[in-house]
């Protein structure tokens, strides 16, 4: 017979807790999804710079009701003055303009008191272009943001419902989207603008009217995938209400698609606002928007190029910054699409 081993409790020695922990210690701090995306965005220099450009433009635009409080105040005596910044002597910023081949000081010619100067010049009614550009940027940004917000709410809601209900509901809802998206969006916008007449709210509605279809399509495709995930099934089995499932399980997982699409929608909305205002059915005078400023400036472009250059530059910078940022966000949220 084998000898039985006698083991007393004190023969065992506990492994030191510290040792065990050291083996499995996670050195890097654990990051949430958003932190991870933020980290990747920061690595993308161009996008990061564009983000800050937009923050600065946004700050300037949203404080403009205080800093640029008289965008419509006209001084007929000071009409069409070129940009002048005291102390700067660069042609184009020193208050001189070329008349009949000769460079003359427009401020002296018009007997403008020496203490009056316009950083970006004045328009044909003697209104400060700098103030009008700031206020115009605000109008354009607001229209872009609100139109996108409507796109977001309608599009995401529509997409989730369509995918979640499925069956006949899905077929009907998708047919509606097909019909709407087979009409050129500019045509819908023009028609709506004609009926609603100019102003901010009509423009927002007109832009949002068919902008949401892309968002709805993307959300639907994503929701269809999520719908068959185990955690959604688990939530349903546990008797969670549909609304709560959508809010707690679907939306967080849809967020990256939504954010990326939003960032592409904002510049599109800003473009369409400028477009409608440019052809004369958008924002109505005397309110300034980047579109109306470009349209006004274009009339004098040959002789007073600054009147179109500055609003056009502002519009282009905003559009470029949004597009580069959107590209960067897409790569940050979805590393699979990042440059391989």
């Amino acid at each position: 017979m084998e000898e039985k081993m006698k083991l007393a409790p004190d023969a065992f020695e506990p492994v030191s807790k510290k040792e065990a922990l050291d083996d499995e210690k996670i050195v890097a701090p654990s990051r949430t999804f958003v932190q991870d995306a933020w980290r990747r965005l920061k690595q993308n220099k161009a996008s990061y710079i564009c983000l800050w450009i937009l923050v600065v433009i946004g700050l300037i635009a949203f404080t403009s009701p205080i800093t640029a409080s008289h965008p419509n105040e006209s001084h007929p005596n000071y009409a069409n003055l070129p940009p002048k910044i005291p102390g700067v002597n660069i042609n184009g910023l020193n208050g001189t303009s070329v008349v009949a081949g000769k460079r003359v000081d427009a401020y002296k010619q018009n007997n403008v008191p020496s203490k009056v100067h316009y950083t970006l010049g004045t328009d044909y009614l003697g209104r400060s272009l700098a103030q009008r550009i700031l206020r115009g940027t605000l109008v354009s940004l607001l229209i872009g943001l609100f139109a996108t917000l409507i796109d977001l709410i309608v599009g995401v809601g529509y997409g989730v419902v369509s995918a979640w209900k499925g069956g006949m509901t899905d077929i009907v809802l998708q047919r509606i989207i097909e019909v709407i998206s087979s009409v050129p969006n500019i045509v819908i916008m023009v028609l709506l603008m004609l009926v609603l007449k100019g102003g901010m709210l009509p423009i927002i509605l007109a832009i949002a009217f068919n902008g949401w279809t892309t968002m709805a399509r993307l959300t639907r495709a994503q929701t269809l995938q999520l719908k068959s995930q185990e955690y959604v099934l688990a939530a349903r089995t546990l008797g969670e209400s549909t609304f709560k499932i959508a809010l707690k399980h679907l939306l967080p997982n849809l967020s990256s698609v939504i954010i990326i699409q939003t960032m592409f929608t904002i510049p599109t909305a800003i473009f369409f606002e400028a477009f409608l205002s440019y052809i004369g059915i958008g924002i109505q005078a005397p309110t300034a928007s980047l579109g109306t400023l470009i349209s006004d400036g274009q009339k004098n472009f040959q002789f007073l190029p600054y009147q179109m250059w500055y609003p056009a530059l502002m519009l282009s910078v905003i559009m470029i910054a949004f597009n580069i940022l959107a590209d960067g966000l897409r790569d940050a949220f979805d590393p699979r699409t990042a440059r391989r």
Partner: peptide, 9 residues
């Protein structure tokens, strides 16, 4: 990014 009307002008 650059709107067609700006480019055209």
């Amino acid at each position: 990014s650059i709107p067609s009307f700006v480019l055209a002008i």
